[in-house]
Design a protein around this nucleic acid. Structure first.
Lengths: 212, 212
DNA sequence: TAGATTGTTAATCGATTAACAATC
DNA sequence: TAGATTGTTAATCGATTAACAATC
């Protein structure tokens, strides 16, 4: 049972933290938790947690709280962690390798079927049993394998043409690490930006403006 | 002239994107921009942009717009991009290397003075002229060099003890890539979290819940 | 039953949008 | 001067918090 549809962006952005926290609780064999206890671990208010959880249909029990494993599974379902999406990765530098290792390390929803780079020193190398292909083979590969998601780890200077090629190939879902903003120009596209430089600037702000 | 103080978190989170966009405009020799034009590039409303910019004192000119270079510089100042903070990096795997290369590639506010790892295969290697030290030397190094910021690129399993050591050494500013939540337990600390797994989960949500 | 804690409704708070006088 | 565009105030919208009846 899922009310959905009315899930707001702030709630969505909190879901991963719920999921991570519930996983940790489970690892510590905590089977039951109240909104009050969860609020302490998440740094939110108990009220907000009940509000959040109720928007996809309330799996708590009055006087008892929430079953950790059930809640984790429900949130996992909502997040779509159980689907499998064929994914390619562009740019196999340090960041690309880090992301590839992360995605390949467990049974993730984005399963990487191809890795591409243009650097001859990197092409042909193996990353967790996947051989890095020449970017020239991108069109051919995509026409055959029809990937649904692309992870962009190329340098910013190379991001725009990379996006354009992928978009022309019909790919509409992107995880973008390149510090280049693609989503502004297309509204039929899903782009999750992980702009490391934005985090960096925010940190600078927080440090230099802290009240001390 | 700076009103400051009344800058809300949503505004702060938007500042890096302003900064990036203004940099790009400058590179394209665009010297002048109106809130209307900026709004298109940023995916915000013109009204919001004027509202945002006015909260640190309005550097626009009626009938003209904003001077790109001036605005960029002002936002850079607000972000604290001109300070220099002594920084150490913990964990020199792929992600750590990527972050180190990023920080060392230009003249950034976080200047890395030490990199630490516990893997004997990594210790002693050079990353952009900085030799990776044994994590055992952390206490000694910090007592001498007094770094102000730590970047956490260790695996999640090792994050908690790493944070504890750094906190004991008096470090209060963190850039955390480890998927472990540290800030919940201390309120005298600044932690900017870049949880790659959270981005990943959000992307999964967006893909599996898109209306198509 | 009594105590605890949910789900939900109402109240508050804050952020975004709209509108417009000021002015370059 | 006329046109453009700001900075700011007021109106709207949405998100968070508080409160409490329902109920396990």
């Amino acid at each position: 049972m899922n009310k959905q549809g009315n899930i707001s962006m702030p709630v969505i952005r909190r879901l991963p933290k719920y999921y991570r926290t519930l996983s940790e609780l489970l690892q510590n064999d905590i089977t039951r938790i109240s909104s009050k206890e969860l609020s302490i671990r998440l740094g939110l208010t108990a009220s907000q947690i009940r509000q959040d959880l109720s928007c996809f249909g309330g799996f708590g029990q009055q006087g008892y709280g929430y079953k950790v494993s059930q809640l984790k599974q429900e949130i996992g379902n909502i997040l779509g962690m159980n689907f499998k999406y064929k994914t390619i990765l562009l740019g196999a530098g340090n960041l690309g390798k880090a992301v590839a290792m992360y995605m390949l390390s467990k049974d993730r929803s984005l399963s990487i079927c191809g890795i591409f780079d243009k650097d001859p020193n990197i092409i042909g190398k193996d990353i967790n049993n996947i051989t890095v292909s020449n970017i020239d083979e991108l069109e051919n590969f995509c026409n055959i394998n029809k990937p649904e998601v692309a992870i962009i780890c190329v340098p910013k200077s190379n991001a725009a043409p990379t996006f354009d090629r992928l978009y022309a190939l019909g790919i509409k879902n992107y995880w973008n690490f390149s510090n280049y903003d693609f989503n502004v120009m297309h509204d039929d596209v899903i782009v999750e930006n992980t702009h490391i430089s934005d985090s960096f600037m925010t940190l600078c702000y927080l440090i230099s403006n802290q009240k001390n």
